[in-house]
């Protein structure tokens, strides 16, 4: 660093900005791996559904939605195991990745916030799902709009994943990651919270279909498509982060281990 002691303050600020950018690129150049990991987990979860991309004439939905979205699962136990083993495994992989980067770079980021948030939310999901359920009044299912919102339907493993991604965005100082987490939460809430899944209110159906005075409708999409939509921003953000890290030479840091 050149001496800002006797330099114009503008030069000092410019130099600090350069130093900050360089440190940020090095320290946060590893965000692409957990982002890609979450995206892959989301996409892989489409295999939990009986018809992830096809269009069956009838489906049988069981609650809680252990597969993630309200659709027919291959096996609820398999779905449960997928998320309750898959998410901790993802965090274990993330821990190994960040530990390796820390050894290489000598810079430590607060990645445990990502893991603790995700695991905490997963435990909360398990606890809330075990609360005895009252029978759903049929009138609730007939209702439309906000009155049809069913909070228990939010007991889906997708929300802990979404919150963990938001935490990762905060830790890695990445607005893109935080927005990708928000997007997953938004889609999961919309698809799970209202019946039927993916129900569009009248105004939205009018907007999309060019109709007038419609009562609403549904998009002709299946769980696999929705999961693709959820994971897409994550993949984009991961690629952008990886390209930035590559430019900064921090994609796979090869710096020798420094001791001090």
């Amino acid at each position: 660093m050149a001496s800002p002691d006797h330099r114009p303050p503008a030069d000092t600020l410019a130099e600090l900005t350069r130093l900050r950018r360089r440190t940020r690129a090095n320290a946060h150049g590893g965000a692409w791996v957990p982002a890609l990991g979450v995206a892959l987990l989301l996409l892989a979860s489409s295999l939990l559904y009986a018809s992830p991309f096809g269009g069956p004439t009838s489906i049988e939905i069981t609650h809680p939605y252990w597969a993630g979205l309200p659709d027919e699962q291959r096996d609820p136990v398999l779905s449960y195991v997928f998320w309750f083993v898959g998410i901790p495994l993802l965090f274990a992989g993330t821990a190994a990745w960040y530990a390796w980067r820390t050894r290489r770079l000598g810079l430590r980021v607060a990645w445990p916030v990502f893991a603790v948030t995700g695991l905490g939310m997963l435990v909360l999901l398990a606890v809330l799902a075990s609360v005895p359920e009252r029978a759903v009044h049929p009138d609730t299912l007939d209702a439309t709009g906000w009155s049809a919102f069913w909070w228990r339907a939010l007991l889906t493993p997708l929300l802990p994943v979404a919150v963990a991604v938001v935490a990762l965005g905060w830790v890695e100082r990445s607005p893109g990651l935080a927005a990708a987490g928000g997007w997953i939460a938004l889609l999961a809430t919309w698809l799970c919270g209202w019946y039927p899944a993916g129900h569009l209110p009248g105004w939205a159906a009018d907007l999309l279909g060019g109709t007038d005075g419609s009562l609403g409708g549904q998009l002709a999409l299946r769980p696999g498509h929705y999961l693709g939509l959820m994971g897409l921003p994550l993949v984009v953000v991961a690629v952008v982060h990886a390209l930035r890290a590559r430019r900064a030479g921090a994609l796979l840091p090869a710096t020798g281990v420094t001791r001090g």
């Binding site: 900050r20 440190t23 940020r24 320290a27 946060h28 770079l105 000598g106 810079l107 430590r108 980021v109 607060a110 100082r173 420094t258 001791r259 001090g260």
Partner: peptide
């Protein structure tokens, strides 16, 4: 910019 930084770094 980081949580912790090694002395040598």
């Amino acid at each position: 910019e980081v949580r912790e930084c090694r002395f040598a770094t």
